Amino acid sequence: MSVEWKGVMPAVTTKFKQDDTLDMEMFEVNIKAQLEAGVSGVILGGTLGEASTLTYEEKKTLIIETVKIVKGAVPVIINIAEQTTKGAIHAAAVAEECGAKGLMMLPPMRYKANDYETVTYFKTVAKSTSLPIMIYNNPVDYGIEVTLDMFEELMECENIQAVKESTRDISNVTRIKARFGDRLKVLTGVDTLGLESILMGADGWVAGLVCAFPAETCAIYELAKAGKREEALEIYRWFLPILELDINPQLVQNIKMAEVATGIGTERVRAPRLPLIGEERARVEKIISAGMATRPTLPRYKELNLISS
């Protein structure tokens, strides 16, 4: 299966049991809800997946079990966030062995590489694997920006095919499309710019709150792509206060609380993360409760996908 870099791709959360081991039963509940909603891929091991706290064996288990759950319906993509080039090459090889069909790649972790080092890192890993790659460009959180000139150099690697655009600059979607056309697919990585990015020509949406609200997220995407802007906007306006929970240092806790509200997750996180308490918990609960109380009735958006395809 080749990866089509389009549609809604959830950056899924990792589920934990009370004893801090992987909760694959609840994880499967969530993945099946994503598939039912119509997502086009599943991304493991991102920030929301608490990748920095997962062991090597846990990451392997997540890939292998997710491949089993999706049964070829959508590609499974694993995020690579490593400190060394050697480590990234190894992670890519393991991902391929375990059945992943694509990679999402961050620049080197911890060390703030310069432009030359960053490009060399991506190229070296890309040349080591046959898997297609989406570069995760998030200078706000990770301190390194992959510029258009850097992408120009990266285009010599045919398997570098997409960018998760998380610069927070909405005009970057237009810049990338104007320069690279369909050679570089653009997926927005910022929930609060989801609809705006799609309307500006983004091919897809790597989403966070989709973990709790898969149907609503997919509906916005399909309606926007079908030219039904007003219908998409109506859902998006309802969704925005909840989507803002993604733009927060405690986004994992926030989104897991939302997953509990919709019945497809648990609130357990892995230390040093802890569940929210006090005033912040009350604030997040209020936002989620208000959203649940006014949750919209969705149009038959899946039919739009069938018509367009």
Results as ranks from 00 to 15, higher is better:
Glu4Ala: 14
Glu4Met: 12
Glu4Thr: 14
Glu4Arg: 09
Trp5Asn: 03
Trp5Gly: 00
Trp5Pro: 02
Lys6Pro: 04
Lys6Val: 09
Val8Ser: 01
Met9Tyr: 06
Met9Lys: 08
Met9Ile: 15
Pro10Leu: 02
Pro10Ile: 00
Ala11Ile: 11
Ala11Phe: 08
Val12Ile: 14
Val12Tyr: 00
Thr14Arg: 03
Thr14Ala: 08
Lys15Leu: 11
Phe16Trp: 10
Lys17Tyr: 07
Lys17Asn: 15
Lys17Arg: 14
Gln18Val: 14
Gln18Ser: 14
Asp19Gly: 11
Asp20Pro: 03
Asp20His: 12
Leu22Trp: 07
Leu22Asn: 11
Leu22Asp: 11
Asp23Leu: 05
Met24Val: 11
Met24Ser: 07
Met24Thr: 13
Glu25Ala: 15
Met26Gln: 10
Met26His: 11
Met26Phe: 10
Met26Ala: 12
Phe27Glu: 05
Phe27Ile: 03
Glu28His: 09
Glu28Asn: 12
Val29Gln: 06
Val29Gly: 07
Val29Pro: 04
Asn30Phe: 02
Asn30Val: 05
Asn30Ser: 12
Ile31Leu: 08
Lys32Glu: 10
Lys32Asp: 11
Lys32Arg: 15
Ala33Trp: 02
Ala33Met: 07
Ala33Lys: 09
Gln34Asp: 14
Gln34Glu: 12
Gln34Tyr: 11
Glu36Lys: 13
Glu36Ala: 14
Ala37Ile: 00
Gly38Ile: 00
Gly38Val: 00
Ser40His: 12
Ser40Cys: 13
Gly41Tyr: 01
Val42His: 00
Val42Asn: 02
Ile43Pro: 04
Ile43Met: 15
Ile43Val: 15
Ile43Gly: 04
Leu44Ala: 06
Leu44Pro: 05
Leu44Thr: 05
Leu44Asn: 05
Leu44Tyr: 05
Gly46Ile: 00
Gly46Tyr: 02
Gly46Glu: 04
Thr47Phe: 09
Leu48Met: 12
Glu50Val: 02
Glu50Asn: 05
Ser52Ala: 14
Thr53Ser: 14
Leu54Gln: 04
Leu54Phe: 05
Leu54Val: 06
Leu54Gly: 08
Thr55Val: 08
Tyr56His: 15
Tyr56Asn: 12
Tyr56Phe: 13
Glu57Ala: 14
Glu57Arg: 14
Lys59Asn: 09
Lys59Gln: 13
Lys60Thr: 11
Lys60Met: 09
Thr61Leu: 13
Thr61Ser: 13
Thr61Pro: 04
Leu62Ala: 04
Leu62Lys: 03
Leu62Ile: 07
Ile63Asp: 05
Ile63Asn: 04
Glu65Asp: 15
Glu65Thr: 11
Glu65Pro: 06
Thr66Phe: 03
Thr66Ala: 02
Thr66Glu: 01
Thr66Gly: 03
Val67Leu: 08
Lys68Pro: 08
Lys68Gly: 08
Lys68Asn: 15
Ile69Arg: 00
Ile69Asp: 00
Ile69Val: 15
Ile69Leu: 03
Val70Ala: 02
Val70Cys: 03
Val70Gly: 00
Lys71Ser: 13
Gly72Ala: 11
Gly72Leu: 12
Gly72Ser: 10
Val74Gln: 06
Pro75Asp: 09
Pro75His: 09
Pro75Tyr: 09
Pro75Cys: 15
Val76Asn: 00
Val76Cys: 06
Val76Gly: 01
Val76Pro: 01
Ile77Trp: 03
Ile78Gly: 01
Asn79Ile: 01
Ile80Thr: 02
Ala81Pro: 06
Ala81Lys: 05
Ala81Cys: 12
Ala81Ser: 14
